[in-house]
Amino acid sequence: MVTTMLAARISPSRVGAVINRNVGALRSGPSYWLVLVSGFFEPVLYLLSIGVGVGALVGELRLPSGRVVEYAEFVAPAMLAVSAMSGALAETTFNFFFKMKYSKTFEAVLATPVKPFEIAVGELAWALVRSSVYTGAFLVVMVALGLTSPGWALAAFPATLLVGVAFGGVGMAISTLMRGWQDFDMLTTGQFALFLFSGTFSPVQDYPAAFEVVVAVTPLFHAVELVRGLAIGELGWGLLGHAAYLVVMGAAGLAFAARRIQRTLCV
């Protein structure tokens, strides 16, 4: 309890300085921008190829509520959640790991008044910037294709931020445990499995019952359900449950990451 209170004594100016470093790194060259842009297009390409392309074969889909939607309308919010996830994970895994382990950036920062928790918060906030640039642009695409209305797009946007927090927090936590680059293969595979089986391309109700239970504990499922509910205007109390899952996930990831930074670098 005491440590939580101490950890909560964070300075906005120091967190800002951690973010400021990443803004500075943006100017380092075009390579970062290329990665940034390609990361955005991936879910867009899936939306066009599967949502719209395969969707033409699938036709319409009946939601549990009985409402019927176009297949693309069903897939688009899932791709939106995926872009929030991948934006946040890209920053908090590869980039975070590099700063923590290879370039010793965090080591240098920890010699200043900045505390481990402030590094974690700053890095998470930065990941959220990238994630929200992706989701903001993706929502524009969705509105342009008539897959959501501007009003529901605005409602879905904060939900994508929450998805970014959740995956950003856990991404950092995972990065602090990574031994080397080879571990990232596992992460990439895991991320792809979530991408395929989180009620993204077909309703989870269509999965075998046992598998549905497994999926229900994985994070992208909750992200997809929450974002989809808002993007297509299917509101229900269940959405609060999904949101709570993501809040806990983000907070736990953040706290764990801060603790690991402390324990690995402050020895």
Partner: peptide, 8 residues
């Protein structure tokens, strides 16, 4: 300059 910001 970046380092200076960590010191406020």
């Amino acid at each position: 300059t970046t380092y200076a910001r960590y010191f406020g």
